[in-house]
């Protein structure tokens, strides 16, 4: 659990070590790299420019995201982190007037904006959890099997199995096992968000994109989702957009800091929070702007 800092004293100079800043003192960031630090690159974003109509939202993004790791995107509101996240499973295709003018995104070496790529197939492999939990107004059971049903899975035994597995995976099974056929909307906010995660892992994607999954949750529900993220990264690659720097520090392996549509710094989370190379990053993580 994170204790909130009561006051934020301005730093005397940007050269002061971030470890001494009030904000970073509450982070539990290990300073020793662990053994399994090496990871393969799963997603590669190269020279990426993105527009909403005539307004450029992303400028020349270059980023390599690791397989089976948690990557956090942080930055102030409107910095393009959610936009980039939504580009990774082509959710931005749904918005009129969006276009990519340069560069691209490769998942496992395949350009996902290529002409022969079916965005439906892509989204089966790259799932997404939204800021506002959006369980469908169906039963908990139907919420979980939704993805399988549209793929044509009919076997009751298989669906039951997936429901239990997904709910266990989302640490929700014990809370809802006796009321699987009640509406998903009868759950609390945190449970709804975990239901959405369960629904996503039911289709067994490789990547789970999380767009500020905890911004509408209380600290206890947030802690549960964060524990869940730790569990999930054994199986899935997770990319999480967050406004909470504590959250990025707690649950991510690598962190990318965005500002004004540009990628400012991308490094190991501990580097970003303990020893950022860029003065803007340092100012942001220490709470001096944003």
């Amino acid at each position: 659990m994170v204790t909130t800092t009561s006051s934020r004293t301005p730093l005397s100079s940007p050269m002061e070590t971030p470890a001494d800043t009030p904000a970073s003192r509450t982070f539990k960031v290990s300073s020793v790299p662990s053994e399994d630090d090496r990871a393969d690159t799963l997603i590669e974003i190269k020279d990426f420019d993105f527009y909403y109509g005539t307004k450029q939202a992303l400028f020349d993004i270059n980023l390599k995201l690791d397989d089976k790791r948690v990557t956090a995107f942080i930055g102030p509101s409107g910095c393009g982190k959610s936009t980039l996240l939504r580009c990774l499973n082509r959710m931005n295709d749904l918005i009129d007037g969006t276009r990519i003018t340069r560069g691209g995104v490769k998942v496992r070496g395949v350009d996902i904006y290529g002409r022969d790529v079916d965005s439906i197939e892509l989204r089966k492999r790259v799932g997404m959890v939204f800021q506002k939990s959006n369980p469908f107004p169906k039963s908990i059971y139907e919420n979980i099997v939704y993805g399988l049903r549209i793929q044509g899975v009919k076997s009751k035994a298989r669906l039951d199995e997936v429901v239990e597995k997904s709910l266990r995976g989302a640490a929700l099974w014990d809370e809802v096992k006796d009321r699987l056929h009640e509406s998903g909307l009868s759950l609390s906010g945190g449970q709804q968000q975990r239901l959405c995660i369960a629904r996503t892992i039911a289709v067994e994607p490789e990547v789970i994109l999380m767009d500020e999954p905890c911004s509408a949750l209380d600290p206890i529900a947030t802690a549960k989702v964060e524990e869940l993220i730790h569990e999930l990264k054994k199986q899935f690659t997770i990319i999480i957009v967050t406004h909470s720097m504590q959250q990025a520090a707690r649950c991510s392996d690598k962190t990318a800091f965005f500002y004004m549509g540009k990628l400012i710094e991308y490094a190991d989370t501990r580097t970003i929070f303990m020893n950022p190379a860029n003065a803007q990053t340092e100012a942001y993580v220490s709470g001096r702007f944003g």
């Binding site: 749904l94 997404m128 506002k132 939704y146 959405c196 629904r199």
Partner: peptide, 15 residues
């Protein structure tokens, strides 16, 4: 109908 229903469904790979 909330946009979230559409996005949630599309994100699961629905057409």
């Amino acid at each position: 109908v909330p946009q979230g229903f559409r996005e949630g469904s599309l994100a699961l790979g629905a057409t």
